[in-house]
Nucleic acid binder design. Structure first.
Lengths: 347, 347
DNA sequence: CTGAAAGCGCTTACAG
DNA sequence: CTGAAAGCGCTTACAG
């Protein structure tokens, strides 16, 4: 890369971080006393004078507790994690944001782990989870199933799993889901009600894709219409554009495209335009997620909304209630969240 | 929330995770041998037969090393962090994506820490950094300065800082930046070249905002024009809409608005439309970042692009070269990255 | 070839 | 009121 500029040489060795022992030596008190005072253990058995000396020395030396050591001892980290498939898909940052605001208020740090929706990276996330970095996790997996997740955490990590459908409740973990099939069915029905007969679903079989396709097929079957499915290999704008372009190169005859998420829909819109199709006049397009861009598009995108922020907040509440609150041993539950059709100009 | 469903009761106690000691007991070998074998220490001093027994027992018991313990000992985590101000601003996920792809290839996990651009949360990130969770970090701070950062990490964590301008090189850390002032000046000049005389900058003084304003002022002054600044209190779409609406309620007379980032620009566009202004005919709008939505807007947004993905990848390379490679003691450097004006229909 | 031992930096009974 | 001691689960010299 260009224009590297150089500073003065780095120190040969890193400074050793001060420990409780250093403070003990500096104050002439015991390391035990240092630990007690710095952790504010009540009722304090250390004299006010000693406490003050310890605090001052800690300040002066720039003491910061080593979390690895603390966690090793206490097996608590006061950190929560969000495991998501794709941080560049705006629906997940929204989820994380809601989660984080609640976690933050309860004194928990939030870490984000992006799996790319890839099996191998999801398993790395699992391994990471099993290593004791966090007390709780909100997880969105495309490949890992509940059994693997349970095996990895072994009851040592509180878990809320975001699911694509109402699974049977788990013994140990909470689940949050929307009824993806019903939502997709409702959207498909809305397109049918507008007079569309030939409707294609642009979808990816991963994650919530399967349930959304199920709802699409149900609505089409109920209306006696022939369903058409366009397969994308990912939930991204690129994948949507590619799949749509390939379809357009063949004999595409649908008057509406229902994409399994907004990024696919946006990609499809680009490909349709490139092929000279007007939206919605020649082809109507609908999506799923209601990401912020959806309403910025021209025409604005018809889509399905759920409150990601609220879901994120709720997930964090569930975890915190298990960790700090009364829910420690509560059996796992499933929580269904509402969705809402957002009808705009693209369909 | 609705429809909670209940599973069978949770177990009273969490299962204890198996340790090396458990494997030692199970195999009748020493815990030392277990550690040696499972870590594949070469050349192996343990007999092949013993190694096999240990591996089998580890498998059978579902052994997973406790990272806290390992890190406490080795002070290495094979984890890197990205500290960003707002994960819901699409420019940061792109940065993180690039970073992660490189980190992943080198066998490092990537954690993401969102500070919300708030001083208090940035300091929490600093504290978190100082606790030994990661070997290296790519950080974007709005408030924390280099001195605080250096004090927190004390040479124990490799650091790449994303800056808003060419600072003097640091002794210990690498910096990556684009010339924000030059970029803003170029964009302002482009607006002037289009015939605009009354140009407002919609900006937030945080982070790169100051430098971008500087460039704006420089261009205006050079052209002998009167600069106008509209202050937003954040870099979000909402903040942009609020600030623009407030301005429109007064005596707004500019023919162009240059926003300090795309989200502000998008918010401003909404407020302008709500006030009956046509874009670009009545008011031209330009942004900064070239987030994915920018080209989806109608009219598409004129903006400034840099390659976030490439910058993220490069940042990870710098860290890995320090940690695993030959750069361990290399003095800190500054690396300037290119930018590019993207002229679309909004201006 | 194998294991006893020290130590990473903490927390937490426990004994004075 | 205070400190010696054990232990969290590992790694790594070191001694047999």
């Amino acid at each position: 890369m260009k224009k590297p500029t150089t500073g003065t040489p780095a120190p040969a060795v890193a400074l050793r971080r001060p420990t409780q022992r250093d403070i003990a030596v500096a104050t002439g008190l015991s390391q035990t006393a240092v630990s007690l005072v710095l952790n504010g253990v009540e009722p304090s058995t250390v004299s006010e004078e000693a406490r003050e000396r310890i605090r001052q020395a800690a300040q002066r030396l720039g003491y910061v507790p080593n979390r690895m050591a603390r966690n090793l001892q206490s097996a608590r980290t006061r950190t929560l994690a969000c495991i998501v498939p794709d941080i560049t898909n705006p629906t997940y940052p929204a989820l994380v944001r809601g989660f984080q605001s609640t976690a933050d208020a309860a004194g928990y740090d939030t870490m984000i782990f992006d799996t790319d929706g890839a099996p191998e990276r999801e398993h790395r996330a699992l391994q990471w989870l099993s290593q004791g970095h966090v007390d709780g996790v909100m997880a969105v997996f495309f490949h890992v199933d509940e059994a693997e997740l349970l095996k990895a955490v072994r009851g040592r990590v509180a878990v809320v799993q975001m699911e694509s459908q109402a699974h049977k409740p788990s013994r140990d973990i909470d689940k949050i889901y929307i009824d993806n099939a019903a939502a997709a069915q409702a959207m498909t029905q809305a397109l049918i009600d507008k007079g569309h007969q030939r409707i294609a679903m642009l979808s990816c079989p991963l994650g919530p894709g399967a349930e959304r396709q199920r709802g699409f097929h149900a609505a089409m079957q109920k209306a006696g219409l022939e369903p058409c499915v366009i397969a994308a290999d990912d939930f991204t704008q690129d994948a949507g554009a590619r799949a749509m372009a390939a379809e357009l190169a063949g004999q595409f005859r649908c008057s509406a495209v229902f994409a399994a998420n907004d990024l696919l829909a946006i990609g499809a819109m680009g490909a349709l335009r490139a092929a000279g199709k007007r939206i919605p006049d020649d082809v109507a397009v609908a999506g799923f997620d209601d990401i912020p861009s959806a309403q910025l598009l021209q025409p604005a995108l018809t889509t399905v909304r759920r409150s990601e922020q609220a879901i994120g907040r709720f997930a964090a509440e569930l975890l915190i209630a298990r960790l700090d609150g009364p829910d420690a041993d509560r059996p796992g539950r499933g929580f269904e969240q509402p969705f809402q059709l957002v009808l705009r100009d693209s369909a």
